[in-house]
Design a protein around this nucleic acid. Structure first.
Length: 581
RNA sequence: GCCAACGUAGCUCAACUGGUAGAGCAAUGCAUUCGUAAUGCAUAGGUUAGGGGUUCAAGUCCCCUCGUUGGCUCCA
């Protein structure tokens, strides 16, 4: 039996069970989803999750009655009358929409006493549904028809899979994923924090987190210089004039922090870096000989995000974009887009990510600009994803009003997809700021501008990175590459000497010479996911060797100091993911 | 922003239907000098997120605010 059909049928069973308990509930819709199904309800009173057990029990009883799903049709007007009598405005609205589309008859399914508007399909009989493959999961508020102007219904989510084993497996996997949640690991590994006092969505990077960020930024900067970019730096605030010209005060004001008044001028904290880069462009008269220009900046921006959307490091109010703008002539856009995409994918690979999906977003409705420009740009984007041969799909109408884009998305530990890289054309700013260059015939032309954030933001990237590695960072990114563990005080002098040698070699280490057992030191070193734990006791001092324990293989073996340093250096250079000791 | 749940020591959690907050880990001190996931003893740590209310009495009940979480909407 088709799983989606079972899930959808279960949503009817859920609704039937809910109506048993709360007969004056109005029904919204109840589709199957990738992990089960949900149903939206408009309760007349309160609904509490403590009722889950009772409802689940009733669902099983309904299934055990071996009821058939009986299908029948009604003319639309009769159907509307039926729901008007029931006082269900939602179904009336749905049927009215169908009517307006020219549909004359609508389908119903009857399950025992329970009747629901539905096009199906369903199982023939509830006896086809095992009673142990589903579990009511959680409630959530959901706007009717997904529109925040509409009223909010109560959505009941449930899990449902082919078998009980599959269900249990999913629940287990979700619990496991929670263990590598970046918020949990961020606290355990002392990487970052937020606090009430500082404010929601504002992240403080602790020494170990900041060390990783430093490593990321250094790598990022070097790679940018290597790949034809120049780095720029711009201020955190700008006068209102800038944001009026850019248009942000018109179409983005809701997302900007309130201005501060300085010398009778309003200054805004920047929500984007673009206008500043444009201003740099405009400091000179530009020629086609200068193009393309590729300017990158780790630019910290602040955006007022709605309180309900904040989420760990993934969605914050202050963040650093790894931003860049490519300004080029039309004949250069194919090459430039292809190159930006290639560079992006290379960087993701360098950081150890393989599963990345691209979405090519095209022109939304009511966007200004001429068709030819849009189409040229969209073609360039499509060519680029095809050339790189990565998984991608179209996101029709999903572009910004000012230009089409490619987004690259990566999944987190809980299978949620996060938009990271964005490569977008901007037809708006070049117009607004009247950006020009002189072509080879001496004519003034408008350049193309491509905005690109490669990792997205350092905060979100860090969140995904933590979950990707479950906190066990590869040697080149580990804030602490090795920890020296003493067995007795007699080894302290040896350790002090060793420390100088490690320092000389720029190796990131810590020493644990506390008066604690070796077992305890190992335990703590493991919990901190340090790649190498180096135990030093009398034997090591005597032989002038190290006993090195590998985090990933959990093996340990003796090795000379110089050999070990060389291995760490090599792993760092090659950014290798498997430790070679 | 909306719907819902939650907020007790740095962390993880306890405190029966209202009766004056307790444990483990962490921290600090002392003893111990130890070989691969927790050595022992002791000390300190809290205006129970903040504010207001009900009550003889509030961590517990009610209201407001703040924050967190799960969703919804949004996310150039």
């Amino acid at each position: 039996m088709n799983l989606e059909t079972i899930r959808h049928s279960l949503s009817h069973v859920l609704a039937a069970a809910v109506l048993e308990v709360k007969p004056d509930t109005n029904l919204g819709i109840g589709p199957a989803i990738s992990t089960g199904f949900y149903y939206d309800f408009k309760f007349s009173g309160d609904f509490s999750e403590t009722e889950f057990k009772d409802i689940e029990k009733r669902m099983r009883k309904i299934i055990q009655k071996k009821l058939p799903f009986e299908h029948y049709e009604l003319p639309v007007d009769e159907a509307i009358e039926y729901y008007k009598k029931l006082g269900n405005e939602f179904k009336v609205e749905l049927i009215n929409d169908l009517k307006n589309d020219g549909i004359t008859k609508v389908g119903f399914y009857k399950l025992g006493e329970f009747v629901d508007l539905c096009k199906g399909p369903h199982v023939n009989n509830t006896s086809e549904i095992p009673t142990d493959i589903f579990k009511i999961d959680k409630t959530a508020g959901a706007y009717w028809r997904g529109d925040e102007k509409n009223q909010m219904l109560t959505r009941i989510y449930a899990l449902a899979f082919e078998s009980k084993e599959e269900l249990d497996k999913y629940i287990l996997r979700r619990e496991e994923a929670l263990k590598r949640d970046h918020r949990k690991l961020g606290a355990e590994l002392d990487l970052f924090s937020t606090s009430d006092e500082v404010g929601p969505g504002l992240v403080s990077w602790h020494p170990k987190g900041a060390r990783i960020r430093y490593l990321i930024e250094n790598f990022w900067k070097k790679e940018h210089y290597k790949n034809g970019y120049e780095l720029v730096n711009t201020p955190h605030i700008g006068r209102s004039l800038l944001w009026e010209t850019s248009g942000h005060l018109g179409f983005y004001a809701d997302n900007m922090y309130s201005p501060m008044e300085i010398d009778e001028n309003n200054y805004y904290v920047k929500p984007m870096n673009c206008p500043f880069h444009v201003m740099i462009y405009k400091t000179s008269k530009r020629s086609y000989r200068n193009l393309p220009l590729r300017w990158a900046e780790l630019g910290t921006v602040y955006r007022y995000e709605k309180s309900g959307v904040l989420h760990g490091l993934m969605r914050v109010r202050g963040f650093t974009q790894d931003d860049a703008h490519v300004i080029c002539a039309q004949e250069q856009i194919d090459d430039e887009i292809a190159e930006v995409l290639r560079f992006s994918l290379k960087m993701w690979k360098d950081f150890g990510f393989k599963e990345i999906k691209a979405y090519v977003a095209t022109r939304p409705e009511n966007s200004p600009g001429d068709d030819a420009k849009w189409n040229t740009a969209i073609e360039a984007l499509k060519k680029a994803v095809t050339k790189e041969g990565i998984a991608w799909e179209m996101d029709e109408g999903g572009g910004a009003f000012y230009g089409p884009k490619i987004d690259l998305k990566v999944k987190d530990a809980l299978d949620r997809e996060w938009q990271m890289t964005t490569i977008q054309f901007d037809f708006n700013l070049p117009e607004r700021f009247d950006m020009t260059y002189t072509d080879n015939e001496g004519k003034e032309k408008r350049p193309f501008m491509v905005h690109r954030a490669l990792l997205g933001s350092l905060e979100r990237f860090f969140g995904v990175l933590i979950e990707h590695y479950a906190g066990a960072f590869p040697v080149w990114l580990a804030p602490v590459q090795l920890r020296l563990l003493s067995v007795t005080d007699r080894c302290n002098e040896f350790i002090t000497n060793l420390e100088s040698k490690l320092k000389e070699n720029d190796i990131r280490f810590e020493s644990d010479i506390r008066n604690e057992s070796v077992g305890k030191k190992i335990r703590e070193g493991r919990l901190q996911r340090i790649p190498y734990l180096v135990v030093i006791g009398d034997a090591e001092v005597q032989n002038n060797t190290l006993m090195v324990r590998n985090r990933d293989t959990q093996e340990q073996k003796p090795i000379s100091i110089d050999d070990f340093i060389n291995i760490v250096k090599k792993e760092e250079e090659t950014r290798s993911l498997t430790l070679s000791v």
